[in-house]
Simulated assay, not measured.
Amino acid sequence: MNTSTLDRLHFQVKQNRWLRDFALFNRIVLAMGFLPSGYVKIIGERFTDLSVCHPMGHYLEAFHRTGFYYTFVGVMQITAACLLLIPRTATLGAIIYFPIILNICILTFAVRFVGSWITAPLMVLANLYLLCWDYDKIKFILPFNKQTIY
């Protein structure tokens, strides 16, 4: 599929009211997913009461003990969530959100954490939907049909 076909398809999809409302729904729900967890990290509280005997509990305990890195991730979660809620900055919010939620999803399966086997992949998919929704804004950084200038 060449870029002009993709551009036409994207334009047609953007005209659909239901899909536009679904994008708005995804932005709100994803923001709601990161606001409380980011806040907990910023104030320095433990994210969960899972026992350190559980692989996820052990990881989260070690993560909490990293100090400023734990706080940094919380700040980035809050930043991504807030940016998603502002229409003008939603694309940047989705871009920042993606590596964080992808990491959470991979971690969920790596430590066999049954508690988010459904939610983490769904959040990744919702974020991917938003990135595709904003294709027209980010296509310039994608490696499709780049012309080389000599």
Rank of each mutant, 00 (worst) to 15 (best):
residue 12 Q to L: 15
residue 10 H to D: 13
residue 55 P to H: 02
residue 3 T to I: 15
residue 31 A to E: 03
residue 89 T to H: 04
residue 89 T to W: 05
residue 102 L to T: 07
residue 145 N to V: 02
residue 84 L to K: 00
residue 106 I to H: 09
residue 137 K to I: 04
residue 129 Y to W: 14
residue 121 P to N: 00
residue 145 N to M: 13
residue 109 F to I: 12
residue 48 T to C: 02
residue 104 I to K: 02
residue 74 G to D: 08
residue 109 F to K: 11
residue 65 R to Q: 12
residue 109 F to Q: 13
residue 30 L to H: 05
residue 127 N to S: 14
residue 96 I to F: 10
residue 80 A to W: 02
residue 103 N to K: 02
residue 63 F to W: 03
residue 43 I to C: 15
residue 109 F to L: 07
residue 44 G to A: 04
residue 27 R to T: 04
residue 145 N to Y: 10
residue 76 M to A: 14
residue 120 A to F: 00
residue 137 K to F: 06
residue 67 G to E: 13
residue 43 I to S: 10
residue 146 K to E: 08
residue 105 C to N: 09
residue 65 R to N: 13
residue 31 A to V: 01
residue 123 M to D: 12
residue 131 L to M: 01
residue 70 Y to K: 15
residue 29 V to N: 13
residue 14 K to L: 14
residue 75 V to I: 14
residue 66 T to V: 15
residue 134 D to R: 10
residue 108 T to I: 10
residue 8 R to V: 10
residue 23 A to P: 01
residue 86 I to R: 03
residue 113 F to P: 06
residue 83 L to A: 03
residue 75 V to P: 08
residue 12 Q to H: 15
residue 51 S to A: 00
residue 102 L to W: 05
residue 116 S to A: 12
residue 21 D to P: 01
residue 145 N to P: 10
residue 109 F to Y: 14
residue 94 A to L: 07
residue 95 I to V: 12
residue 9 L to E: 10
residue 50 L to H: 11
residue 64 H to T: 09
residue 48 T to P: 08
residue 119 T to Q: 06
residue 102 L to F: 05
residue 54 H to M: 15
residue 149 I to P: 02
residue 61 E to I: 07
residue 56 M to S: 11
residue 19 L to W: 13
residue 86 I to E: 01
residue 37 S to T: 08
residue 108 T to L: 10
residue 34 F to V: 04
residue 32 M to I: 11
residue 66 T to G: 12
residue 56 M to E: 06
residue 28 I to Q: 04
residue 39 Y to G: 01
residue 73 V to S: 14
residue 140 F to S: 03
residue 47 F to C: 03
residue 72 F to H: 02
residue 30 L to G: 11
residue 5 T to M: 12
residue 29 V to G: 13
residue 67 G to R: 15
residue 13 V to K: 14
residue 147 Q to I: 13
residue 45 E to P: 03
residue 76 M to V: 10
residue 17 R to P: 09
residue 149 I to E: 10
residue 21 D to N: 06
residue 58 H to Y: 15
residue 140 F to H: 12
residue 17 R to K: 14
residue 95 I to A: 09
residue 79 T to A: 05
residue 99 P to I: 00
residue 29 V to C: 06
residue 22 F to D: 06
residue 93 G to K: 08
residue 4 S to W: 07
residue 44 G to N: 13
